[in-house]
Design a protein around this nucleic acid. Sequence first.
DNA 1: ATGTGGTGTACGCGTAACATGTACATTTAC
DNA 2: GTAAATGTACATGTTACGCGTACACCACAT
Lengths: 124, 124
Amino acid sequence: MILKRLTTLRKAKRWSLQYTADRLGIAKSTYAGYESGHRRPSLETINLLAGLYDTSTDYILGRVDYPYKDINTESPQVMELTDLSDMELAVDGISLSEEETIQFIAFIRAKREVEINRDKQNET
Amino acid sequence: MILKRLTTLRKAKRWSLQYTADRLGIAKSTYAGYESGHRRPSLETINLLAGLYDTSTDYILGRVDYPYKDINTESPQVMELTDLSDMELAVDGISLSEEETIQFIAFIRAKREVEINRDKQNET
DNA sequence: ATGTGGTGTACGCGTAACATGTACATTTAC
DNA sequence: GTAAATGTACATGTTACGCGTACACCACAT
C-alpha cells in the first residue's frame, strides 16, 4: 500500500489538500489522513483519486510502478469481432473457442438479414 | 464499483467461496459479502484479489474493461462478455445492441449446457 | 429414504477504523 | 510585522466491516 504516492501526484498537479478534498467531497483532514498514512481511503475514493490524478488504482496501491495515463484511450471503444487479433472473448469466465466466435458472427449476421427483409416487407 | 466481476473471476478459476476466502485469510461469509454486494473489501483485500485472479484492481473496480494480466506483455487479453460496461462490440462495423449481446450469451450458455450433459452421458 | 460433506446465502452483533471538526503549526503573500 | 492559506495532529461519534452462526440446496453414498 503505497499511499505516499498520493502526495507526489497531488503536488504534480499543484493542488492543495483543501482543493483535493473538495473535489473528492470529503473533509480536508480526511484526505490529509490518507497522505499521512493514518487513514485509508474507501474504494470509491480510490477510484475518484485515480481519475483526478490521471493514473490507475493499481499505481496508487503500488501494484504497478508507473503511473500510466489515459487508461481509457489505450483501449478501443468499439471492438470489431471480425478482426479480433490479440483479444479473446469469454462468457462466464470461459474463453470462447474460435468456432464459437464464428458462430456468434454468423448468428448476428443472420439476425440482421432477417430484420432487413422484414423491414422491406413493411415498406410495401 | 463492479464487484460482480469477482464472481465471474472466481468461477473462471473454478474456486469456491471457502477456498477463495482461505487464500485471502478471511471468513467465507466475509468474502461472500463482497460478491453479493453487501460488504466491500479493504484495499489490501482488493490488492490480494487482483493478484489471485491475475487481473488488476482497475478491472475489479470497473475502471477498465480489460482484465489485463501484464501491462507490458502483448499476451492476448480476455474480455468477459457478461461484464462489459463501457465497451462496445461490433460486427461488420455495426455495433451490437445490448439485446444482441444478451442473446448471444444465452446462446453460448445453452450450447455449453448441452455439451456438459452429453459428456455426462458418455461417462457412464 | 437418510445421512454426509460441500456449496452458496442471509442475519445479528461486537468492534475496528473511518470521517469530521477543531485546534495548532507552518508557510506564503502582502 | 500581519493575515490568509496550507499542512498536521487529535478526540469523538458513528459507520460498516468481519465474524460466527444458521439455513437451504445439491450431489453422492450409505
